[in-house]
Computed example of a mutant assay.
Amino acid sequence: MIRRSFVSVILLLCTLSALLTGCWDTKDINKRLMPVVMGICKEKNQDYRIILQIPSPEKQGSQFMESSSATITNAIDNIRTKSEKGIDLLHIRLFLVCEKTAKEDLGDIIDYAVQANDISIKGLLAIVRGNFGEVIHHQINANPELSSYDFFSEQAGWTPETTIIRLWEAYRDMKSYTQDMSIPILTKGTDTLYQFEGSAIIREDKMVDEITSDEVLIYNVFQEKYTGGTIEVADQSSVKIKKASIKHDIKWLATGPQIKSRIKLKVEILENKNEESEEKIATKLKETIEKRADKLLNQLKNDRADALGIGQLFRKKMNEEQIKSWKQHWFMNMEHDITVDVTILNSLYLKSPNKIKKPVS
């Protein structure tokens, strides 16, 4: 016979389990606001100005809420206090930081975003140039929250002349001895939502320089994120890069690190008004890319910012002290040779074996 005490325990456990399965802490979606963009800028009094862009189907556009405080957390709490609905930050896709703040210190902002429990570390990061409020509030069409993200989406408006970096990548690079980062710079567009002005070079947690879209192309090749784009080889000709890849040969000599990088490009000629030979166009393209790569590398050395992440390739060959002094010493004295191989695909498309051109190297 089952004891009464045992039956009582079973009944108690069943009652508790029934209570635990209830969705007692859920909040109706109609009672929540879900921002997709957060703008952050430090004001003259060192307070953080926070602007949240929230999709608003009723307004056929966006709703904006903002506040300022000595800390980001308190500024967001102030917005929550005056909001008639709960604010869910989990859906933020894009973080926009004003250029002035980026030049002073990005560390606090990135630390906050990564350590906050209610913010996705997959959010994208960009720097705003010009009037911060005007860029954030700028709207073009009835769906600005999607337009903001599409500018950085590889399935939509993103192009390989623009860098793309997520919060977790920025946090990783900021803490790294052997790698820095590049963050896209944007301004208010005229016929579009944004206009890109190249990319910022970040050393540790500060913006120290910037590069043009021409150099960004090389940067994305090194990051293995290049997925095609158009380049003007001369005044009357242009090519489209269908595929770009890169391989490195690294050595650690008595004098220090040495690296030979080989970029392979497969291109299609789009315009050739001067009717130049494929060999001549390939040679010009090779020289153009090599010149851009050398310029970018020299610029990064002057900035002591390893935005290409070359130090990552040498980590296994360095001891702890060498890793810590990579940017200050070894990166500055590194020997780096960059060569480009170009393969023209136009002849291949004609399916004529006697017209297939060998890559120019």
Rank of each mutant, 00 (worst) to 15 (best):
K358Y: 11
D205V: 14
L16G: 06
L13A: 13
D111R: 08
Y149K: 03
V208A: 08
V239A: 05
S325P: 10
T192Y: 11
S8C: 15
G189P: 01
G229L: 00
E321Q: 14
E197D: 12
Y177R: 15
D108R: 08
C23N: 10
G123R: 00
Y177G: 08
S148P: 03
E278D: 12
N346H: 02
Q46S: 06
S238E: 09
I310V: 12
T212N: 14
M38E: 02
E232S: 07
H91V: 07
A282Q: 11
R315L: 05
G130E: 05
D341T: 09
R315A: 04
K324C: 04
P160K: 08
V360I: 08
P55I: 01
S83H: 05
L11E: 14
D150L: 09
E43H: 09
K59L: 11
N143V: 04
E335K: 13
S347W: 10
A254I: 10
Q179Y: 06
K31I: 04
K355A: 08
L94G: 01
V340R: 05
S277D: 08
T15C: 14
A244F: 00
L89A: 02
I10F: 12
H336R: 12
E224N: 11
T15V: 13
S245H: 01
I164W: 03
L193I: 05
Q60M: 11
E161T: 04
P160H: 07
T26K: 15
S325V: 01
E43Q: 13
I10P: 08
E232F: 03
T255E: 12
K82N: 10
K355N: 13
I183L: 04
S176M: 03
E232D: 11
G123W: 00
E275K: 15
L186Y: 02
T227V: 06
F196P: 02
V208F: 02
D111E: 10
I54Y: 07
S261E: 14
L186G: 01
V128R: 02
G86R: 14
T21G: 14
L285P: 12
I140Y: 01
K188P: 07
P35T: 10
S67E: 15
S352W: 07
L217C: 11
R32D: 06
I29H: 13
Q236M: 11
T71L: 07
K100A: 09
K286R: 15
N274I: 04
Q139T: 15
S56R: 15
G22P: 03
K316Y: 04
I127Y: 13
E215W: 03
M332P: 09
F95N: 03
I259Q: 09
K284H: 13
K317F: 03
I338H: 12
P257H: 00
L285W: 01
S245P: 02
L350G: 10
L297D: 14
G61V: 03
I281Y: 04
A75H: 02
S147D: 14
S245K: 10
S261K: 12
S67M: 06
T101P: 06
Q46Y: 07
